[in-house]
Design a protein around this nucleic acid. Structure first.
Lengths: 134, 134
DNA sequence: ATTGCAGCTTACGTTAACGTAAGTTATATT
DNA sequence: AATATAACTTACGTTAACGTAAGCTGCAAT
C-alpha cells in the first residue's frame, strides 16, 4: 500500500495558520520545528503541522515560544527513563495549574465585560430617552 | 461620617501583586495608572489598586499592556456620547470573542495535557514492571 | 549630625519575537 | 533563453515590557 504521507510547503502552513514564513523559520531556529529538506526547501510533515498548530494556539493564550517548546517536547518520545517521565509528569501538573488559573482569569474578565456591557447599554438608553424629549 | 479612604504606597501594591515598583511606574508611563501625589510620592487609591489588579490579570492571560489599557478605559466614565458608547459595545463584543477563543484554546490544551499524562503514566508502569523482572 | 531607607527621576541596557532588506538559487512558465 | 515565482540565507532593525544603574530627596531612627 502506498502511504498517504501528505506534506506541506512553508507557505502552505503560513497561510493555513495565518503566520509569516519568517515566523515559521524563526520557530525552527528555536528548535520548535525540524522539517525535512529536499535540497534547500523545507518539507513539513503532518506532525510538523500539528506542532505548528500547538505553537500558534499557545501564542493565542499568551505562552512564550519557550513554554510552547517545552510542551512540544512532551510529544516526542525523548529519554524514556523514570526520572525523565517523572519530571514530565510534574511539568504537566504545573502547566495544568497555570492553565486553570488562566481559565479563572478569563471567566472573571468575561464577567466584567458583561457588567460593562450592561452599564453601557443602560447609559445608551437614558441618552436616547433624553434625546427624545428634545 | 469619616470616609475610610485607604491608600497604598507603590511598594504596598508591588508586594501585593508580585510585581516590581519599576513595572508599576512603567504602567503609569503608559497611562494605565494616574495615582495622586503627596509631594513626590505616589499615592494609590483603591480604584488604582483595582486597575493594577486588572493589569496583572490581563498579563496572565497574555494581554498586552495596550489591550489592558483599552479595557481599563471602559471603567472610566469617558465621553458618554452615543458614538463613544457604541464603539465601546463593539469593543466589548470583540474582546468577548477573543476571550472565548482563549477558553477553547485552553480547554484543548488541558485535554492534551490529560492525554500526555495518561501516556506518561502508562510508560512509567511498563518501565517499572520490566524493572521488576530484572 | 549622620545613617539608612523608601521613593523619585533620568537614561541606557536587555530579551523575545519577529520584520525587513538584500542578494542567491531552483523550478516552472511563457 | 528569459522571466517570474517561491524558497533560501545572512544580517541588521524594531517593538514591548520592563531591568538596572546612578544620583537626588525627604524623613525617621540612632
Amino acid at each position: 500500500m502506498a502511504k498517504k504521507t501528505s506534506t506541506y510547503s512553508i507557505s502552505d502552513l503560513a497561510q493555513e495558520f495565518g503566520v509569516t514564513t519568517r515566523a515559521i523559520r524563526h520557530y525552527e531556529e528555536l528548535q520548535l520545528l525540524q522539517p525535512e529538506r529536499q535540497g534547500q526547501k523545507r518539507i513539513y510533515s503532518p506532525a510538523d503541522r500539528t506542532k505548528l498548530k500547538l505553537i500558534v494556539r499557545g501564542k493565542r493564550i499568551g505562552l512564550s515560544l519557550q513554554e510552547s517548546g517545552e510542551l512540544l517536547s512532551m510529544y516526542e518520545p525523548g529519554g524514556s527513563n523514570v526520572a525523565q517521565l517523572e519530571r514530565m509528569l510534574e511539568y504537566i501538573g504545573t502547566s495544568r495549574e497555570k492553565l486553570s488559573q488562566q481559565l479563572r482569569d478569563i471567566s472573571a474578565m468575561l464577567d466584567e465585560l458583561d457588567k460593562a456591557e450592561t452599564g453601557c447599554q443602560a447609559e445608551l438608553e437614558t441618552l436616547r430617552k433624553s434625546r427624545a424629549l428634545t
